[in-house]
């Protein structure tokens, strides 16, 4: 599903964020990515999303070489993925419903389909009663649920989460993680960058540890062995 082959990313300022990284993630996997702050996790996600281009190496998504695709092809690749960030990134002037519908609108989905899909996904993340609220009327956990709903409404094959629980308390974090697990059980490949040691240790999923832009450890049913 996702394959990094010797990928190196050097930022224009000379920082080598990824150093000859190779890894493979299968379809339907649930993978944690852990590592110190500044180790290159976000850069990895950005490479995957085609927000950044690798300087060296090759990136395959769905067995397709997407290392150097034309700018115009990028939206098509992104529609295979949903993304969730630490800071939710909801649009403050739109209701929950419209924030979620937005993802369908801009992919030119028919209005009829939007009206059916949004309530369904909102009830899946447990927000069906709050669809008319604005982001500032929601708790952090609820905002992240809305962001999740937006990320999965296009039925992406891959869900990328960059520290999705970084701003949430432990209990809420668990709820979000359970949701991610639900989504994974429905067949979506889920990649979660996190610092949440307890969750990682409890879930017994594959854990990839990044250190200085390289893969330091990659363990099935691993734990958060990394010392911060």
């Amino acid at each position: 599903m996702i394959r990094f082959e010797n990928i190196t990313k050097v930022y224009p300022n000379g920082v080598k964020a990824l150093d000859n990284i190779s890894l493979e993630i299968e379809k339907g996997e649930f993978v944690f990515i852990v590592g110190n702050s500044g180790s290159g996790k976000t850069t990895l996600i950005k490479i995957l999303m085609k927000e950044l281009d690798a300087n060296e190496g090759k990136l395959y998504i769905d067995e397709q070489d997407v290392t150097h695709v034309k700018h115009k092809k990028v939206p098509k690749i992104r529609r295979k993925m949903g993304v969730v960030f630490q800071d939710f990134r909801l649009l403050s002037n739109m209701t929950v419903y419209n924030n979620v519908a937005f993802a369908l609108k801009i992919t030119e989905t028919a209005t009829r389909k939007i009206r059916r899909a949004v309530p369904m996904v909102l009830s899946m993340v447990g927000l069906n009663k709050k669809s008319d609220r604005y982001p500032h009327e929601l708790s952090g956990g609820e905002q992240q649920r809305a962001a999740l709903a937006r990320a999965i409404i296009n039925n992406p094959q891959i869900l990328l989460c960059d520290e999705p629980t970084g701003n949430l308390d432990p209990k809420t974090s668990w709820e979000i993680m359970k949701l991610l697990l639900d989504i994974n059980l429905r067949g979506t490949t889920v990649v979660v960058v996190t610092h949440n040691r307890e969750v990682v240790n409890a879930m017994k999923k594959r854990v990839i540890t990044i250190k200085g832009g390289t893969v330091a450890k990659d363990i099935q049913k691993g734990d958060y062995g990394y010392e911060d």
Binding site: E51, P75, I77, R78, R89, L91, I106
Partner: peptide
């Protein structure tokens, strides 16, 4: 800017 960024993440085309 925020909105445009989000649009990009969910796969909006350039034209859009």
């Amino acid at each position: 800017k925020r909105e445009i960024n989000i649009m990009k993440y969910v796969g909006a085309t350039d034209t859009f």
